[in-house]
């Protein structure tokens, strides 16, 4: 055993001063385990594999295998990023606990990013005005994030998605044209929301054009079957969440000067409270429900709501 970093955090300050080059990304907010190894802007390895409820059994073995594929030792990692959800509670905790433990033990910074943001980054964005990232929340609800695409403004520093040495799961991910598409400015207009698919359907109907990504697509398609097609300009694409998107988001945060916190302060963003808490705070729940309606109205009629908020 090498005798660097005696007890974890001591080595962190020194390491986080320089821009980390070698990143490990993890997301376990869905039945997929999403992983990537990125060096600078180069995706060295990226994979999505379905593990159902077997995240705990598989994740470290898969990290080990990925590292050996690109010939890195675990000590070579310089930074980590983990998807904070929302998504499956237990799934999220497996990923976040792994990321906390690894980053702490290695004495490297850990960044947390929204899994919905990463879904939006993973989408091919050309020619739509909105991206809606939605993840199945069960109990007839979805977690949703709304992103406005503003053309013409180019965000620098997003990683090159092609030329990964590892397995890349979807064909469009290797399409060089996509690099242009993902560099369009993607603005998140809300923090993640928990909504019923019908309400989300109403919101999407009002968008001039929208692209729907995430595991919530299957929930939405049930609604569409009942309600008829949403709009000719709304499409749902079967993209997978990409680990390199998590790294890109973390690098962007870092470029904006956000510092990593202690590993243990990176926690899941559950959005939904535990059932027991909801039972205790049922009245508050009604208030929250009204807020949800208010927000969706804002999405639908931004001009009206901006006028009212100026009041």
């Amino acid at each position: 055993m090498e005798n660097s970093t005696p007890l974890a955090r001591e080595g962190l300050a020194e390491k986080s001063l320089k821009r980390p080059k070698r990143w490990l990304a993890l997301d376990t907010s869905t039945p997929d385990v999403v992983m990537a190894l990125v060096e600078n802007e180069q995706v060295m390895f990226e994979q999505v594999f379905w593990s159902g409820t077997g995240h705990s059994e598989q994740i470290l073995g898969q990290i080990d295998a990925a590292l050996s594929l690109v010939s890195w030792r675990v000590e070579d990692l310089e930074a980590m990023v983990v998807g904070q959800g929302p998504g499956s509670f237990t799934g999220l905790r497996v990923g976040v606990a792994t990321a906390q433990g690894l980053s702490w033990a290695l004495g490297i910074p850990l960044f947390g990013v929204s899994s919905l943001d990463a879904w939006a980054w993973s989408a091919p964005m050309a020619a739509t005005s909105w991206v809606v990232a939605c993840v199945d929340a069960r109990k007839d609800q979805v977690y949703a994030g709304f992103y406005r695409i503003e053309e013409g403004e180019i965000e620098i520093g997003h990683s090159e998605p092609s030329e990964g040495r590892g397995m890349v799961n979807s064909p469009e991910a290797t399409d060089p044209k996509r690099c242009v598409a993902v560099s369009a400015r993607c603005v998140a207009v809300s923090s993640p929301l928990l909504v019923s698919p019908w309400r989300l359907h109403e919101a999407i109907k009002q968008m001039p054009s929208a692209l729907l990504v995430g595991t919530g697509v299957s929930v939405m398609s049930r609604v569409w079957r009942e309600q008829g097609a949403v709009s000719a300009r709304c499409s749902a694409v079967p993209v997978k969440l990409r680990g390199s998107a998590l790294v890109a988001l973390a690098q962007q945060d870092q470029a904006k000067g956000r510092l990593s916190e202690a590993s243990w302060s990176v926690l899941p963003v559950y959005v939904r409270a535990a059932d027991a808490e909801l039972q205790v705070t049922r009245q508050e729940d009604e208030v929250w429900f009204a807020e949800e309606v208010g927000f969706l109205r804002e999405v639908l009629f931004p001009s009206v709501s901006s006028a009212s908020s100026a009041r």
Binding site: L7, V96, G101, W104, A105, P268, Y270, D275, A276, E277
Partner: peptide
């Protein structure tokens, strides 16, 4: 005990607790 709340709380406190346990034992990782 509410299982979901217990799980959430474990994740918030486990790592600092582990660090403190090592520190209190006055040992190095090696």
């Amino acid at each position: 005990v509410v299982p979901e709340i217990a799980s959430r709380t474990h994740l918030e406190v486990a790592l600092p607790l582990i660090q403190d346990a090592l520190r209190e034992a006055q040992i190095q990782r090696q």
